[in-house]
Amino acid sequence: MDITLSGLKKTFGQSPAIHGIDLKIVSGELLGLLGPSGSGKTTLLRMIAGLELPTAGQIFFGKEDASHKTIQERRVGFVFQSYALFKHMSVAENIAYGLKVRPKAQRLEAAQIYKRVAELLDLMQLAGYGGRFPGQLSGGQRQRVALARALAVEPRVLLLDEPFGALDAQVRKDLRRWLREIHMRTGHTTIFVTHDQEEALELSDRVAVLANGRLEQVAKPEIIYDQPASAFVHGFIGESNQIYVEQLNGRLFAAGSDLHLQCQDQTDGPHILFVRPQHVKLSQPTETGWRGQIKAIHQSFLGRRVEIALSDFNGTLDAIVNDSEKLVIGETIGVTLSNYRLFALAR
């Protein structure tokens, strides 16, 4: 089922939480909603579910306008951050809940409900756990029960709020891979909220980056990482060095010295230059190129990082370098950037 958000806004009292979002989620897609806390990602998810009503704008499920449909009519599968399992019901009763509360006319027969619950227990690798109670399960198992319960009603869209937030690193990794598999097998349109960029980039077909209630960029993970659309996205995703620069007549300056770098747009004025540590290359110092002094060398199992103080203007850069390069603290070296991005700053 395609989900289309059109001009969606939400205001809590006086403070706006969502500023007007247009977004189309294609049927069968796995979309990650990524943003820092307070960016409005959970509010957006809750509006799609009908748990919050938008202040303005519309939500379409396929071609149908669902904006004014009740929660029950929308038939979404919602997995809560803390799972919200019914603790007085067994695992099987939890999963069957959505099938049993339907009006009589639409309800499956008891035998069919039983069969569906058994299938879901199998799918979630929880066979044999049907009789247990949520209190007797581990965090990862509870998460899977919550997902099974949401899938039981054959939802038109599956919504997950910080699905792995409360789990330890190893369980997170396993569940991530496994959620991907479940998604491939069931093909539900899925939207999940996370503040963990690694999770979003690894799991999603597309990532929507949200900041202060606005969409900053919606794209495939590799595009988000390699071609961030805004200064916020570049700073938020992955590691970056930042240098404030001035663009004048198509040339770039920092503290009055020419940087000898290509401009990326036509607008003169203050810009911010982003460069990832792996794109900072060390070389022999030259007359025209950037020069710097090695301030510190950090060796760890992840590789070697060098902190460089730039000589011609104020600024430091982090660089990731080859283990084989011979470097001495205090040594003067040349610096080149193999890749960088410029964003104009609002004056």
């Binding site: 748990l51 029950q72 979404v76 809940y97 509360v101 319960r149």
Partner: peptide, 10 residues
């Protein structure tokens, strides 16, 4: 818990 029940159609 109550919101979960509502999304499940109760």
């Amino acid at each position: 818990d109550e919101e979960a029940a509502l999304t499940l159609g109760a």
